[in-house]
Design a protein around this nucleic acid. Structure first.
Lengths: 119, 119
DNA sequence: TTGACATATTCCTATATGGGAATATAATGT
DNA sequence: ACATTATATTCCCATATAGGAATATGTCAA
């Protein structure tokens, strides 16, 4: 089996840096394709293809305005990702706490060595 | 250019469902490869290859214990993902608020129609 | 050393890219 | 109808899989 399609789900879609950039750019307000092209410095067809992927997984909304297509990030689609990653929050907090503890113990030891030296 | 390597970063690495399952499984405690194999129902070489990818991007820690290799999730590696997704939290909150508003307005309208009918 | 167990790597193939180039589709103005 | 503008799609190719099969590596025990 080959790698899963980029259109399989949000996880695969946002694996691409350019698509994450697009989502960041379109979060605040909707924009026509031309502005996204200018913003990313990519060829227009490439941008259209990325937008297609984002549409297929429901990460952007589109509406037509004359000849323009206005795209906007659908933040809801990013929630599953945030929630999955959030499961690990308590673990990295634990890890950080342990790192802190060790660092403080190290300082204590250093201090006691120092006082020994002073003796 | 082809798709970015799965070992490019955490985003690409966790795009694969199996690898997310592995990270969930290894979050609570370290486990030998054999248990991961039993848990996922995949072939051992496939699991070893997924673990290799996770190691390369720093999403798991490993240590040897006799013939076994004990893997454990490195939650820190998942933070960038959580933080990127977290940028959109305020937007989906807005979106939900608007949906709620509209729903409430709809109910109001329905009520006023009802009272008209009653007249 | 030899055998058994645990894990990793290599080789293979079908599949899915992402970008460039060329072309198609859609909407507007004249 | 025709030219122009804005996007989308198709065709091409180099690259990177994920999994299966076979094999290699590493560790322990007798």
């Amino acid at each position: 089996m080959a790698r899963a399609a980029t259109t399989s789900d949000a996880f695969n879609a946002v694996a691409e840096t350019r698509r994450r950039e697009i989502l960041n750019y379109l979060a605040l307000q909707e924009r026509p394709v031309g502005e996204i092209v200018a913003m990313l410095g990519l060829e227009q067809p490439s941008v259209s293809k990325h937008l297609r992927v984002l549409r297929d997984v429901g990460l952007v909304h589109v509406r037509r305005d004359g000849r323009q297509m206005l795209y906007r990030t659908n933040a809801e689609g990013i929630r599953p990702l945030h929630e999955w990653a959030g499961q690990f929050e308590r673990f990295w907090q634990h890890q950080l706490a342990r790192i802190k503890e060790r660092a403080e113990e190290k300082i204590k030891k250093t201090d006691s060595i120092k006082s020994q030296e002073e003796t």
